[in-house]
Design a protein around this nucleic acid. Structure first.
Lengths: 247, 247
DNA sequence: TTTTACGGTTGACATGGATCAAGCCAACGC
DNA sequence: GCGTTGGCTTGATCCATGTCAACCGTAAAA
């Protein structure tokens, strides 16, 4: 939408300008390790900031890929749909994380990205990112690390899906969320789930009833307190023990 | 080992020299899309070729990462080990595919790569690859595509582990192998498995007995002929139907 | 305030795949 | 040729999780 009011024009420009350099997620996100001068070059590139309302798609499987997205605030899920109607949640993403890396491969997105709460993202045109990372070694290397980290994360999920039983999967899931919230300055012990039991189940390869029962069991055993989407972790080591003790 | 004989010196030099430009896998591997001049610069970088004997490790989890590896010939598996002894095969790799991308993230390998038959690999020092891909746009972009493809592949495995039943998993596995053998000029309908039932099971999140039973069932139903590791696919569409028909 | 709807919980029962166990087959060393 | 070994197959049984169904709680709509 064109801006006719010079004041709001100025505001929107300044918002764009402050993109990465003022972002308190820069140590988690793409700008990690860049000098001020390099950072401002990245700022030029992170062209647009966009709000995505809860329930809306950031992109859909099949759309042509031309940008990756950094989450500035909010919470997303990605899911893959099979021809026969089966689908699976492949990940939950929070502020500071990147979305859309899967699209580089075929130049089309291969999954759907859906906001689980009102969110804000920064679009990073991919060819310009490649251009800049040809000039800024640090940026190039960090981007490679981020992609590699995604591969390692996926291996972790494969491990979870391939070898763990229901309660182990849920414990791993909660600990992972807790750790990621901590890294963002939130409480490690208390948080709201942004997704439904069904979405958790889909991600963990379980039915929603199984997820619900596991939550109840954890509560009975004093590991956590659950009230709908509100989770309090009461006994971290109890949860961790569930993971390592082959039962 | 130092070469004192000038003749064998010359041979080993010429072997190195022909690395990528003469490799018949170059359209599947990193050199994809490069001009002759660019190709020869990549050749300079692919420093060493190494033989790995069946059963030997190419690298181990925890070792420091400094190179990725292209498989020139042979067959590998990668697996991840958990503290409590559980392990899982995260992939099977064949000629033309890259190994070690997971190590970029932490500068340490996060899985083991083990040869399932006598194999030959090309080591590609990673920092030099980054250097060259800062200069050769095509190489940079192709490398990004390869990493992204790995992420997409992992999502496929997550889908398989999360939503498919045993026979669907095995059908998907066989069709995937068949397709990859075809891309390498081998028969799509007849091949030898390089891995044991247990390794297949680990990859597919199943026990070896379940894998064995599924093979027997496919044979009874005329989809395939199995004799130990020798597989003949008799009815591709039958296998495909197993995948799409929600039963 | 009541109604509705959606997500969550819980119970009873079914089942696919794990587990345990025995035996088979093919390759290899002696 | 014979025994050993590792990998594979097959059968019997068990159990974790799926399935089906009823009900509950909370929040938004009426």
């Amino acid at each position: 939408m064109p801006q006719t009011n010079p004041v709001s024009q100025e505001i929107s420009l300044s918002v764009i300008k402050t993109a990465c350099s003022n972002c308190n997620l820069r140590e988690l996100c793409l700008p990690f390790g860049l000098s001020d001068e390099e950072l401002s070059r990245l700022d030029d590139l992170v062209s647009s900031r966009r709000r995505i309302k809860r329930g809306d798609h950031l992109y859909r499987a099949g759309e042509t890929f031309d940008a990756i997205y950094a989450i500035r605030s909010g919470f997303f899920k990605t899911d893959v749909l099979l021809e026969d109607g089966r689908d699976q949640v492949t990940g939950f993403q929070m502020a500071g994380e990147l979305l859309g890396l899967d699209g580089i491969s075929t130049e089309h997105h291969t999954c759907n990205a859906i906001a689980l709460e009102d969110s804000e993202i920064c679009a990073i045109p991919f060819s310009r990112l490649e251009g800049l990372s040809r000039e800024i070694h640090t940026l190039q290397h960090h981007f490679h690390k981020v992609m590699s980290r995604e591969i390692v994360r996926d291996h972790g999920v494969m491990m979870l899906l391939g070898t763990m039983r229901a309660e182990e999967r849920l414990a791993a899931f909660l600990l992972n969320l807790s750790q990621r919230f901590t890294a963002r300055g939130f409480s490690h012990a208390e948080f709201y789930l942004r997704m439904t039991r069904e979405e958790i189940g889909s991600y963990l390869g379980l039915k929603l009833e199984t997820v619900s029962r596991a939550f109840s069991r954890f509560q009975e055993e004093g590991h956590i307190a659950v009230q709908q989407k509100h989770i309090r972790i009461l006994n971290v080591s109890g949860l961790k023990a569930l993971l390592t003790h082959r039962s």
